[in-house]
Design a binder for these strands. Structure first.
Lengths: 205, 205
DNA sequence: AAAATTAATTAAACGGTGTTTAATAAAGCA
DNA sequence: TGCTTTATTAAACACCGTTTAATTAATTTT
């Protein structure tokens, strides 16, 4: 059965090469400039081959967005050393925003673009497990905050969504270039400044 | 000079017809399904004619997004009758979110999509005046709140951005279908519930 | 080893996109 | 009327995602 195994590996290898090329081009020139034909060119295969390894373009970008979640989770590892739940929540916010600002195209793919989420909707696995996992971390951190006496009078699920929305709102306005409405002198630092205001608010809750 | 005037009017009229067709198709089937050829078909002209009235597709969608801002400003008119600045701020939030939920495609175009903002960047008028105007309204309402003794210890510009980000975050996560991570029983009402949590927070500030 | 079968890969096409160009039709003016 | 300007279009260009049928390569069977 060694032959079948090797063929399996070969097949897997080309799949990985397609994905690597997609990632390279995507990080290099953005998602819109990354076409099936570009990817095929880059690995020196014909465009058609890609459809033997991926159902369609969305599936490729869904796979790429999974890598983004791994990357984000990696960055979140340091949270293990933050005992105070409120401090942990704030640190989560900082890491989240840093990730978005350092990897805007990846963040865009994960939380703004239609492509990967459409793939989730249009296939069997009708749940966005990557996003669900990340949201769970946030939810449990906020649960810890509540158990520690914070956020009295607030409803956990809605508050969790609100807090996520706040940081997502800031970075997505920045990524989609809606931040030029703020005063010129504040423009460069507005996301960082906004986060600081947010921390002040969290302290008061 | 009557002839020149009439030609002017005719030219303006076709421009309006193109815009009306673009709007119709855009509201009917979304922006991605609205192609130059679709628009041309709809007004029974050839595709080429559109380029005598608009520089490119982005210019059309920029014009459309302007209509969206008019619509939003219209909805904001009722704020004139809300004297209490904090109540006015909350009402602004409600109206903003209602607008986004009732006109998701238009909101998408105004605050999420790349198209219209790219047009702003790639032409002479290097300022996003529609967004700037809306942000000004928010800024001055928040200034009124500060003058009325709210939001002590907060910096106005960053807080304004933060508050905008919060509501934008909620609706943009909803529009871009990232809300399925919340508990199923909360899913239908999560944006409304999140806004209520936000109001509780504003009351505490 | 040769033939038959299966798998991997590609060339070509389909129907779409935004945009540009050169030719045509229409309108206004002399 | 003919001349000039304007409005409009047909056709092409260079892309796009995707599917099909044909081709090449590899494997199995005879």
């Amino acid at each position: 059965m060694g032959i079948a195994d090797r063929k399996e590996r070969d097949k897997e290898e080309l799949r990985e090469r397609i994905l690597a090329a997609a990632k390279f081009l995507f990080l290099e020139k953005g998602i819109d400039k990354t076409s099936i034909r570009n990817i095929a060119d880059h690995i020196e295969y014909s465009p058609g081959i890609i459809y033997h390894y991926f159902k369609d373009k969305n599936e490729i970008f869904h796979a790429l967005h999974q890598l983004g979640f791994l990357q984000l989770m990696e960055k979140m590892q340091v949270l293990g050393s933050v005992r105070n739940p409120l401090e942990r929540l704030k640190a989560m916010g900082s890491i989240y925003i840093d990730f978005a600002m350092e990897n805007p195209d990846m963040y865009d793919l994960m939380f703004i673009k239609e492509a990967p989420i459409d793939h989730v909707c249009n296939t069997e696995h009708d749940h966005w497990k990557e996003g669900g996992g990340a949201f769970n971390s946030l939810r449990s951190t906020i649960a810890d905050c509540i158990n520690a006496g914070h956020f009295k009078g607030h409803e956990q699920e809605a508050l969790t969504f609100l807090i996520w929305s706040t940081v997502h709102g800031m970075v997505s306005l920045h990524i989609r270039k809606r931040c030029e409405v703020v005063l010129p002198e504040s423009q460069q630092t507005i996301v960082k400044d906004g986060l600081e205001e947010f921390f002040k608010i969290l302290d008061k809750l």
